[in-house]
Amino acid sequence: MKNLGNMLKQAQQMQARMQEMQAKLEAMEVEGASGGGMVKVTLSGKGDLRRVAIDPSLMTADEKEVLEDLLVAAHADAKQKVESTMAEEMQKATAGLNIPGGLGGLGGMKLPF
Rank of each mutant, 00 (worst) to 15 (best):
M1L: 13
M1W: 13
K2Y: 14
K2V: 15
N3T: 13
L4I: 13
N6E: 08
L8E: 03
K9W: 08
K9Q: 12
Q12L: 12
Q13G: 06
M14S: 05
M14W: 03
A16G: 04
A16V: 08
A16C: 06
A16P: 04
R17Y: 00
M18V: 13
Q19K: 02
E20I: 02
M21A: 08
Q22C: 07
Q22L: 13
Q22R: 09
Q22I: 14
K24Q: 14
L25I: 01
L25V: 00
L25D: 00
L25W: 04
E26S: 05
A27P: 06
M28V: 01
E29W: 12
E29H: 12
E29R: 15
V30G: 07
V30W: 15
V30P: 00
E31L: 02
E31S: 08
A33V: 09
A33E: 13
S34I: 11
S34A: 14
G35K: 15
G37L: 09
T42D: 04
T42Y: 11
T42E: 07
T42F: 05
S44G: 04
G45W: 08
G45N: 00
K46M: 12
D48R: 14
R50Q: 11
R51H: 07
A53Q: 10
I54F: 10
I54M: 02
D55K: 10
S57F: 00
S57P: 06
L58I: 10
M59C: 12
M59R: 11
T60C: 03
A61C: 04
E63Q: 10
L67H: 05
L67T: 11
E68P: 04
E68K: 07
D69C: 04
D69M: 07
L70A: 00
L71R: 01
L71S: 00
V72P: 01
V72K: 01
V72S: 01
A73D: 00
A73R: 02
A74D: 00
H75D: 01
H75I: 04
A76M: 04
D77I: 05
K79L: 15
K79M: 14
Q80Y: 14
V82N: 00
E83V: 09
E83Q: 15
S84R: 15
T85P: 01
T85W: 12
M86V: 13
M86D: 12
A87I: 06
A87S: 14
E88R: 06
E88Y: 13
M90G: 08
M90W: 13
Q91L: 11
K92F: 07
K92D: 09
K92R: 08
G96W: 12
L97I: 14
I99N: 10
P100C: 01
G101N: 13
G102D: 13
G102T: 14
G104V: 06
G107N: 02
G108L: 03
G108C: 08
G108A: 03
M109K: 09
K110W: 05
K110F: 07
P112T: 03
P112D: 15
F113M: 05
